[in-house]
């Protein structure tokens, strides 16, 4: 028996909006520690890892480890029917081939039940090593979203370089080139507006902008985004989910032939 009650149902709505265009079908794994997902996009260039810890749910009952295969587009369609202030409860009976999404309005005067068929998805989980990164950039998520959007109007790849001056985003295309440098600034009065750079050594990597733009759909989840870069690893773009967990996007770089 699985019953997960999330008072801040809007978080789950935002999570689906963030991943439904990147991944089509995925297994949601439920265990005592929480509700998680790990899935790659169809080209295996990007990977998304989601964790919603059990403590973040108002009620979390998971009698035994369960993996539920879902079509994320269909799941997003159902979650769109939930109000932003609704409480969302996920329910599944053992051995059942469906999952139920229950939406309760804040005043409990409207209760909705949406039942969706589950799918069999065979997906191997990848081992993601906890790595020491050469550079970690923490910046406003709206700023990062704006940069990815602006650069993608000029070119289709972005070079992200971190030096002691700051973090530089560069692109080039038929019409010309663009360079955006964000300097460390932790003097701002609001912490979520700060750009903080930790660097052990300079790093420069090239990525496809269309994946970065897809990741920025997670912007509504957090006012801060963290980019972790290392010369020989995929970049990690992380949006923390308040008090509950995180959504992490891993993107493989484009490398010299």
């Amino acid at each position: 028996m699985l019953e997960l009650r999330l008072v801040q149902g809007s978080l789950l709505k935002k999570v689906l909006e963030a991943i439904k265009d990147l991944v089509n079908d995925a297994n949601f794994d439920c265990s005592a520690t929480g509700f998680s997902l790990q899935a790659m996009d169809s080209s295996h260039v990007a990977l998304v890892a989601l964790l919603l810890r059990s403590e973040g749910f108002e009620h979390y009952r998971c009698d035994r480890n369960l993996s539920m295969g879902m079509n994320l587009g269909n799941m997003a369609k159902m979650l769109k029917c939930a109000g932003n202030d609704d409480i969302i409860t996920l329910k599944a009976d053992d051995g059942s081939d469906t999952v139920t999404f229950m939406f309760e309005s804040p005043t409990q005067d409207k209760i909705s039940d949406f039942e969706m068929k589950l799918m069999d998805i065979d997906s191997e989980h990848l081992g993601i090593p906890e790595a020491e990164y050469h550079a970690i950039v923490r910046m406003p998520s709206s700023e990062f979203g704006r940069i990815c959007k602006d650069l993608s109007s000029i070119g289709d790849t972005v070079v992200i370089s971190v030096t002691k001056e700051g973090v530089k985003f560069s692109t080039r295309g038929d019409i010309g080139t663009a360079n955006i440098v964000c300097r460390q600034n932790n003097t701002v009065d609001k912490p979520e507006e700060a750009t903080i750079i930790e660097m052990t050594e300079p790093v420069s990597l090239t990525f496809a902008l269309r994946y970065m733009n897809s990741f920025t759909k997670a912007t509504p989840l957090s006012s801060i985004v963290t980019l972790s870069l290392s010369s020989d690893l995929p970049v990690v773009v992380e949006y923390k989910i308040a008090e509950m967990g995180y959504i992490r996007f891993y993107l493989a770089p484009k490398i010299e032939e």
């Binding site: 295996h44 993107l251 010299e256």
Partner: peptide, 14 residues
């Protein structure tokens, strides 16, 4: 010309 790598070439299956 740069070639797009895949995630699987960095992270092995568990």
């Amino acid at each position: 010309q740069r070639k797009q790598a895949t995630i699987s070439s960095f992270f092995g299956a568990k």
